[in-house]
């Protein structure tokens, strides 16, 4: 390649020049994803924003691969773990999920541009959602009952 000639000694005589170049490179190489702002705005379009945010867990192999034919994703918040298994069926997904610890909580799946679908987990914490459209997705779990009810949401990801 260009042996040493890419940066002659006087390429960056002053900090300002280097900083300007670095700014451009960071903007080029590591700008936020184009759809991130739209996803945040979707994630925020909840009726009630009094929510706790869960963390998606991704193992090394899963990172970057969010839409294979079959995928298991886990997310956690404080005292609740939700594991979901996605099965691609045609243009949509079936979601099989487990709540740990188990509870008969309402689980809602929001997909941008579609009506949200919801179900109640059974007494061992399992739930199934059929024909969930693919796209920017956020999962909402209403934990507990009545006065102790709280809402846990995930960041919106493209599934």
């Amino acid at each position: 390649m260009n042996e040493g000639s890419t940066f002659p000694d006087d390429t960056f005589p002053d900090d300002r020049a280097l900083l300007a170049e670095l700014g451009r490179v960071v903007d080029d190489i590591d700008a936020p994803p184009d759809d991130l702002v739209a996803r945040i705005q979707f994630a925020l379009a909840l009726e009630d924003l009094d929510v706790e945010v869960a963390q998606w867990e991704r193992s090394g192999e899963l990172a970057g691969v969010r839409s294979t034919d079959q995928d298991t994703v886990t997310f956690t918040v404080r005292d609740l773990t939700v594991m979901i298994n996605l099965t691609k069926i045609g243009k949509s997904y079936r979601i099989d999920g487990w709540l740990v610890p188990a509870g008969q909580y309402e689980v809602e799946v929001r997909v941008a541009g579609h009506d949200s679908s919801s179900t109640i987990a059974d007494d061992v914490g399992r739930f199934v959602l059929h024909e969930v459209p693919r796209g920017t997705t956020q999962i909402v779990v209403h934990v507990g009952v009545d006065s102790s009810r709280r809402t846990v949401v995930t960041p919106a990801v493209v599934l």
């Binding site: 991130l36 994630a43 925020l44 924003l49 009094d50 945010v53 949401v153 990801v157």
Partner: peptide
């Protein structure tokens, strides 16, 4: 980048809460 995406969303959700 993936973790950053999630953290950015988390921060906004926390802010508006």
């Amino acid at each position: 980048r993936h973790s950053a995406e999630d953290v950015v969303q988390t921060v906004w959700l926390v802010l508006f809460r």
